[in-house]
């Protein structure tokens, strides 16, 4: 049975192209590639660590993920494409910076809303305290 299944074929690992299409960006190399690799890897969560990013973690899976990021950037994939490639297999969990989308938009909006309300409240309080003065 097993022998039947094994054919002499080209080794082919799953590739990002199957899932996110052709690269949309410019192929990077040299120092720019290294810098972008660290930048993009710092947006990905290492799945076996505790909240550490792929850029920071020395664990084996994080090193592989970082190598994958480097390869994809070198082939011209954009940050967005790379992030959605990882999101596809690991879920939203892998994105350290939540996308402004659906429920997750709240995490960006709520602090700003709080700031707005706070500014209004503080200026009202200040006016009230100044008014007590009688002028």
């Amino acid at each position: 049975m097993i022998l039947l299944l094994i054919a002499l074929l080209q080794v082919k690992a799953p590739d990002a192209a199957q899932f996110v299409g052709a690269p949309h960006g410019v192929a990077l190399q040299g120092a720019a590639l290294e810098r972008r690799t660290m930048e993009v890897a710092s947006l990905l969560r290492c799945p076996v660590c505790q909240g550490m990013s792929v850029a920071d973690s020395p664990s084996t899976v994080a090193l592989d993920m970082k190598a994958q990021v480097r390869e994809l950037l070198a082939r011209g994939y954009t940050e967005e494409q790379i992030l959605s490639y990882f999101e596809r297999s690991y879920g939203e969990f892998v994105l350290l910076k939540p996308k402004f989308r659906g429920v997750n938009a709240l995490v960006w909006v709520l602090p700003l809303l709080a700031l707005l309300i706070g500014v209004v409240l503080v200026s009202m309080k200040l006016r009230k305290l100044e008014l007590v003065d009688g002028d």
Binding site: G51, G91, E92, F93, L96, K97, P98, V107
Partner: peptide, 8 residues
């Protein structure tokens, strides 16, 4: 499941 990490 989602994450809020350092970049945020």
């Amino acid at each position: 499941q989602m994450s809020v990490g350092r970049p945020y």
